[in-house]
Computed example of a mutant assay.
Amino acid sequence: MTERTRYGGRWALVLVAIALAMGAVLLAMGRLPICACGMVELWHGAVNSAGNSQHLADWYAPSHVVHGLLFYGLFRWAAPGASLGARAALAALLEAAWEIAENTPMVIDRYREATAALGYTGDSVVNSLADLGFMLAGFALAARLPWWGTVLFGLGLELLALAAIRDNLTLNVLMLLWPVPAIRDWQAALPG
């Protein structure tokens, strides 16, 4: 029996526990479990709509995959002696912390003030759980790809989101930390 099979089940349970704890915290914060529209869509592609960040996947899902690529590199460097499962759990904790922080009134208001997301109301719990899943998918992919493949895949996702919605992880971080009015105006001019 390999280390992966011997300890893989334990780490899977840890990841489930992290997801359940994150969901419970978000519900306790008053986040809606699903979209206020009463349904859960597999894909919701309309960025400037009330359904954005409310369903399983949207144009921000690639950003969460990129989180996973980055977190794999971070924890491979910061915890080189840790098992892959332990590093995945650390990445899941970091993603869960972000999902919780992202849905606080302070961060929601910051998105409305500093970015083109004027109507942003936060994520539904199902969307946050899916975002955690997308991060874990990116983490797992980075564990299997060579470093240059991970970099190319991450750049591809960033360029895809940029072309599709004029936003991506890079611009999202920039606009939250140091808003650039010209970028906000360019993003707000996204057709329909």
Rank of each mutant, 00 (worst) to 15 (best):
D58S: 02
A101H: 06
P146K: 13
L141A: 14
S83Q: 12
A114E: 12
S83A: 10
G149I: 01
P179S: 05
L169Y: 01
G156C: 08
G73C: 13
I165H: 15
G149T: 00
F153L: 10
V65M: 13
R184D: 03
W147G: 06
L69W: 01
W147I: 11
L145W: 11
A82M: 11
H64Y: 09
G81P: 00
V107T: 04
R144S: 05
L132A: 03
G73H: 10
G138F: 02
M175V: 06
I183P: 14
G133K: 00
T104W: 07
L157T: 02
H67E: 04
A61D: 10
L169I: 07
A114N: 13
A82S: 14
G68L: 04
L93P: 03
L90H: 11
S83C: 13
H64S: 00
G85T: 09
Q54R: 14
A88F: 15
P146C: 04
E158W: 07
A61P: 05
A140S: 13
G122L: 06
G156V: 05
Y120Q: 06
G73W: 14
R166F: 11
D109H: 14
G149K: 02
S124H: 11
E102D: 11
A140T: 10
W148A: 15
A116Q: 09
V65T: 13
A116S: 12
V126P: 03
L70D: 00
P105E: 04
G73Y: 08
S124G: 15
L169Q: 02
G122D: 06
A143H: 10
I165E: 10
L141N: 08
G156F: 14
T170N: 04
Q54N: 05
M135A: 14
G154K: 14
W77V: 15
M106Q: 08
R166S: 10
